[in-house]
Simulated assay, not measured.
Amino acid sequence: MTQGLKIVIVEDDALIAMDLADLLIGMGHDVCAIASTESEAIVTARRCKPDLMIVDGGLQEGNGIDAMRRIATEGFIPHLFVTGDPQRLAQGAPDAVIVGKPFTMRELSRGIAAALASGVPASAD
């Protein structure tokens, strides 16, 4: 597993975001920011220039798929989606790396590795 990644979390549930940040820090990564809306995700990606983004598929303001599509217009950033409804998210982004909630550390690690290896932008249906 690659260590020391600079990661942006996009999650609108503050408790989940904090738990995920703690887990990633414990894995040796740097969580440079947490965004909670689609527009914050875009601004944060520009500012932080992360190695990886971990994105909730459904946000209260906007959604993760659209955020990653917009970010990809300025340059691809490896990312994976975390969601409570992986089947629905896969319909909107069939080539995406998706980890279902709740997830284990092993599933998250596999998702991170897959996202880093993919280089495939969010689907532009």
Rank of each mutant, 00 (worst) to 15 (best):
M1H: 08
T2V: 03
Q3P: 06
G4H: 14
L5K: 09
L5N: 02
I7F: 06
I7L: 10
V8E: 04
I9K: 04
I9F: 13
I9S: 01
V10S: 05
V10G: 03
E11Y: 02
D12T: 07
D12P: 05
D13V: 10
L15K: 05
I16N: 02
A17G: 13
D19C: 09
L20C: 11
A21S: 15
D22G: 13
L23D: 12
I25L: 07
G26C: 04
G26K: 05
G26H: 04
G26Q: 08
M27I: 09
H29L: 10
D30Y: 08
D30A: 12
V31T: 08
C32I: 13
A33P: 03
A33R: 03
I34L: 08
S36T: 15
T37C: 01
T37R: 01
T37Q: 00
S39V: 13
E40N: 03
A41D: 01
I42H: 05
V43S: 10
V43M: 06
V43K: 06
A45E: 00
R46D: 15
R46M: 15
R47N: 12
R47W: 04
P50I: 09
L52M: 07
L52R: 01
L52T: 00
M53G: 00
M53I: 00
I54N: 07
G57H: 14
G58F: 14
G58Q: 12
G62L: 03
N63E: 10
N63C: 13
I65W: 03
D66V: 03
A67F: 03
M68S: 06
M68P: 05
R69S: 08
R69F: 14
I71W: 02
I71E: 06
A72N: 04
E74L: 12
E74D: 15
G75E: 13
F76V: 14
I77T: 10
P78A: 09
L80R: 01
F81T: 05
T83E: 02
T83G: 11
G84T: 11
G84I: 04
G84N: 07
P86Y: 05
Q87H: 07
Q87V: 15
L89F: 10
A90M: 06
A90E: 00
Q91D: 12
Q91T: 12
G92I: 01
A93F: 07
A93C: 15
P94I: 11
P94Y: 12
P94V: 06
A96F: 09
V97K: 05
I98M: 02
K101M: 02
K101Q: 04
K101W: 11
P102R: 01
F103V: 01
T104K: 09
M105H: 10
M105Q: 15
R106A: 15
R106L: 15
L108M: 09
G111E: 02
I112A: 03
A114I: 02
A114T: 13
A115D: 02
A117C: 02
S118K: 00
S118F: 01
G119K: 08
V120F: 02
A122N: 09
S123G: 08
A124Y: 06
A124H: 12
